[in-house]
Design a protein around this nucleic acid. Structure first.
Length: 700
DNA sequence: GCAAGGTC
C-alpha cells in the first residue's frame, strides 16, 4: 500500500488509499461540500452509495441518509405475546443497522482513512448521527477524528469551518440517545399494552407515543369542547344607508343583543334618516410576511388546500429536483450569505414571475423581513431555481408558486390600507360603518393569498344626512369553536415543543392511519376519543406535552454534563413502571372501553354478544368472507354472508344495532358465455338473518 | 405489528 503521495508521483489517476474521509448527514450536503473543497471532484460509488473524491486533496466525501442505525429490543422480544408489555420497561436495548448499504460503504472506506471528519448537521440529532458514523468507522480505523460545524453552504463558511475543525460532542449525542431510548421504551410498552388489551392484532394495532398521543389529546379536547358547546341566540341591528345612489351597511354599536325585546324596541323606534356624526380616517401599514420555516410553509399550504403530509411531500420533491431550498428548517431569517438580488434575478425572464422580479430588482435595496426564530442549520425555504408551469404537475406548481411568491413578499415593502370608521346616528341610536381599501399594495401585489375583502364606503362628511333604506333585525346564534385545521395543529405542536420540523406532519399522518382521526379538518373517531380517555385516567403523563418539555430539559442537562444519560433513562423507566402498576390491574376495563369505542367506528357495528366491533374476516381454507367478532378468542360470535361486494349502509337494525348490508353478487356467465353482472340487493341485518336461519325447522 | 428522529 503506497501513500497517496507516492501514488500521485507515479501518476495514478485516482487513489483509494490514505485519504481524508469526510462524512455528511445527507447526500446533497456531500455533493455541495465536495464541490467547494475539491477542484478535481469526481463522483463515484462505493457499495452503491455516491462518494465524491479528490485526488489532489486525497479526500473523499460520503453522505449518510440521516440515522443509519436505530435502537430496538433484542429479537426475543419481537413477538408481542412472548413477554408481557411491562417486560419491555427493563428489557435490554440494542443498536441495529438500518442503512446496510451506507454502513457497508463506510466500512469499506474506513481502513484507508488517515483522518475522519464528521460534517453532519449542526444540531443535536446531527451530533448523534455523526457519532453513529464514528462508531462504525472507529471499529476499522485508528485514524484521528474531528468535527466541523457550519450553518450554510456558502463557500466562505464551509472553507472556514474546515480550516478550524473541533471535536465531536459526545455529551450532546448522548442527549439524543437518551431521547431514543425513552421514546422506544415508553412507546413500545404502552403501544403493546393498549393493543393487547383492546384485542387489536396485526396491522390494526393501537399506538401510543410521546408526540402522537398529546397531539391526539389536543384534537380530542377540541372535539369535546365543540360537543359541550351550547349555542345561544343573539340579535344584531344592521342598517342599509344611502348616500345618493350608493348603498352601504352600518351596524348598531352595541353589536350583540342578548334579548330580542331590547333589539326589537330599538328597531321599532328607528326612523328614516341617519346623520353622520364623525369620520375617522387612518392609513394602516401591514408588514410583509416573514420567510418560510417548515411550519410557516405548512400553515400557508394548508390554507390553500394542502394536507400537511401532501405539502411536505411536494416540498421534498421540489427540493430533490433543485427548485427550492431544503424544506426542513426552523429558520425564519435569511442568512447574510444569501445573495437575495441574485435569487430574485433568476426570475427575470420567467413568464409567470418576471413582472414581480423586475419590480423587486428596481427597488434601491432588498431588505428582507425576519421572523422570530433564527437557527443555524438551514436557511428559510426559498426558490433556488426558476421553473415554469409547464415543467411540473399542478400540485407541485401550486406549492412552488407559493414559495416563490412568499420569497418575493418577504423582500417587499408593507402594504397600506385606508381604513374609515363613520359614526352615524339614527333616531338617537349609535351606528357605525367600517370601510377598508388597499391604498398601496406593497407585498400583496406579489402574494395574493389570504387577501381580506375590501369594503368601500361612499365619500362621507360630518353632518351628511342619509336615507335609511332598510333596517335588518338579524337573528344569529353563537357558534361552537372550529376544529383545528392541519396547519393550525402543526403550529400548535411547534408552540408546545411537540415533534420537530421534519416529523410534525408525520405524527398527524400516523393518527389518520391508526384510525384515530378522519376527515379534514381532522375529527377524532370514537377509537381516538376512548384511547385518550383511558390513557388520561391511568397513564396521564403520556397524554400531555409536559413529557417532551421535561425530556428537553433533561437532554440539555446531559448535553451540559450536569446529568448522566443512564440516570435520566433509569428515572424514566421508574416512572413508566409506576404507570404500569396502575395500568395492569385495570387491563380488562381498559380493553372493554377500547373495544366499545372502536365498535362505534365500525362499519358493521358492535357485536350483539360482547360489544366488541365486528370485522370482516376470511376463512383460511377457501377464503370465504364472514363477519367475526374482534373480541376473538374470548367471543366466538360469527355471521355468514353471501359472496360478492359488500357495503354496509347508514341504516341500522333496531334490534341488533348493526348496519344493514347491501351485496353485489359476483358476475357470472350464462350458458352462451355471456357475462351476467351481479345485481346489488339489500341483504339486511346479518344478525337477523342468522336468527331466521336457526329458526327454520331442520331438514331431514 | 411497537416510538421518534434523521432522510430518499
Amino acid at each position: 500500500m503506497g501513500s497517496s503521495q507516492e501514488s500521485l508521483n507515479i501518476g495514478l489517476p485516482y487513489c483509494l488509499d490514505d485519504m481524508h474521509l469526510i462524512i455528511t448527514e445527507k447526500h446533497d450536503a456531500a455533493s455541495k461540500i465536495a464541490s467547494i473543497l475539491f477542484q478535481d471532484c469526481v463522483a463515484s460509488r462505493v457499495n452503491g452509495v455516491p462518494v465524491y473524491r479528490s485526488n489532489k486533496a486525497d479526500a473523499a466525501v460520503i453522505g449518510l441518509a440521516g440515522h443509519v442505525v436505530e435502537l430496538d429490543f433484542p429479537p426475543e422480544y419481537g413477538r408481542w405475546t412472548a413477554h408481557p408489555p411491562s417486560a419491555l420497561i427493563a428489557a435490554p436495548v440494542i443498536t441495529v443497522p438500518t442503512k446496510k448499504d451506507i454502513i457497508g460503504a463506510l466500512e469499506s472506506l474506513a481502513p484507508s482513512a488517515t483522518r475522519v471528519t464528521i460534517a453532519t448537521d449542526y444540531d443535536r440529532e446531527g451530533e448523534l448521527i455523526g457519532v453513529e458514523a464514528y462508531n462504525i468507522v472507529r471499529r476499522l480505523s485508528k485514524a484521528p477524528f474531528d468535527r466541523v460545524r457550519y450553518s450554510s453552504f456558502a463557500r466562505q463558511e464551509i472553507l472556514g469551518a474546515f480550516s478550524k475543525p473541533t471535536s465531536l460532542d459526545f455529551s450532546l449525542a448522548a442527549a439524543g440517545e437518551c431521547r431514543q431510548e425513552i421514546d422506544l421504551v415508553w412507546g413500545a410498552a404502552l403501544t403493546r399494552f393498549v393493543s393487547l388489551a383492546g384485542n387489536r392484532a396485526g396491522k390494526d394495532f393501537l399506538s401510543v407515543g410521546r408526540v402522537q398521543t398529546p397531539l391526539l389529546a389536543i384534537i380530542v379536547d377540541r372535539e369535546k369542547e365543540i360537543q359541550a358547546f351550547v349555542s345561544k341566540p343573539y340579535w344584531e341591528l344592521a342598517a342599509v344607508l344611502l348616500k345618493g345612489a350608493e348603498a352601504f351597511m352600518a351596524r348598531h354599536k352595541k353589536g350583540r343583543f342578548d334579548n330580542k325585546e331590547e333589539a326589537m324596541a330599538i328597531y321599532k323606534k328607528l326612523g328614516k334618516a341617519a346623520t353622520v356624526k364623525s369620520i375617522l380616517r387612518e392609513s394602516k401599514k401591514e408588514p410583509a410576511p416573514t420567510p418560510f420555516s417548515t411550519t410557516e410553509l405548512l400553515k400557508a399550504a394548508s390554507a390553500i388546500g394542502f394536507s400537511a403530509a401532501g405539502a411536505m411531500q411536494a416540498a421534498e420533491e421540489l427540493y430533490i429536483n433543485g427548485r427550492i431550498s431544503y424544506p426542513r428548517t426552523d429558520n425564519t431569517v435569511y442568512p447574510p450569505t444569501l445573495d437575495l438580488r441574485q435569487a430574485v434575478g433568476l426570475f427575470k425572464a420567467s413568464p409567470e414571475f418576471a413582472q414581480s422580479a423586475l419590480e423587486l430588482l428596481a427597488q434601491r435595496s432588498l431588505v428582507p423581513t425576519k421572523g422570530k426564530v433564527e437557527s443555524k442549520d438551514h436557511p428559510p425555504i426559498y426558490p433556488v431555481a426558476c421553473a415554469s408551469k409547464a415543467q411540473m404537475d399542478e400540485r407541485h406548481w401550486k406549492l412552488y408558486e407559493l414559495v416563490v411568491r412568499r420569497f418575493f413578499a418577504t423582500l417587499s415593502p408593507p402594504c397600506e390600507w385606508d381604513v374609515v370608521r363613520a359614526e352615524v346616528d339614527i333616531s338617537g341610536e349609535p351606528f357605525s360603518a367600517d370601510g377598508k381599501r388597499l391604498s398601496a399594495p406593497g407585498w400583496r401585489k406579489h402574494y395574493p393569498y389570504g387577501m381580506p375583502k375590501e369594503e368601500v364606503l361612499p365619500p362621507l362628511s360630518v353632518g351628511d344626512v342619509l336615507a335609511v333604506k332598510k333596517i335588518n333585525l338579524l337573528e344569529k346564534k353563537t357558534e361552537p369553536p372550529k376544529r383545528y385545521g392541519q396547519g393550525r395543529l402543526i403550529e400548535l405542536m411547534e408552540k408546545l415543543g411537540l415533534g420537530t420540523k421534519a416529523t410534525r406532519h408525520e405524527a398527524l399522518s400516523k393518527l389518520y392511519s391508526r384510525g384515530y382521526i378522519e376527515g379534514n379538518p381532522p375529527k377524532p373517531t370514537q377509537t381516538g376519543i376512548t384511547l385518550i380517555d383511558a390513557l388520561r385516567a391511568h397513564a396521564n403523563a403520556i397524554t400531555t406535552p409536559d413529557m417532551t418539555g421535561k425530556l428537553e430539559k433533561d437532554m440539555d442537562a446531559i448535553a451540559e454534563s450536569r446529568l448522566k444519560k443512564d440516570d435520566v433513562v433509569l428515572e424514566s423507566r421508574k416512572m413508566l413502571r409506576a404507570i404500569f402498576d396502575q395500568l395492569e390491574p385495570r387491563r380488562a376495563d381498559i380493553g372493554k372501553a377500547l373495544r366499545a369505542g372502536a365498535a362505534l367506528d365500525s362499519d358493521i357495528g358492535p357485536c350483539p354478544i360482547c360489544g366488541s366491533p365486528l370485522v370482516i374476516r376470511e376463512t383460511k381454507a377457501d377464503r370465504r368472507k364472514f363477519i367475526a367478532c374482534s373480541g376473538f378468542p374470548e367471543c366466538r360470535n360469527t355471521y355468514n354472508i353471501p359472496p360478492g361486494t359488500l357495503k354496509f349502509e347508514k341504516k341500522i337494525c333496531e334490534k341488533h344495532r348493526l348496519h344493514l348490508l347491501k351485496v353485489t353478487p359476483p358476475s357470472s356467465r350464462d350458458k352462451d358465455g355471456k357475462t351476467i353482472k351481479g345485481k346489488a340487493y339489500e341483504y339486511g341485518c346479518p344478525a337477523c338473518k342468522k336468527e331466521a336461519f336457526y329458526a327454520q325447522p331442520t331438514q331431514k
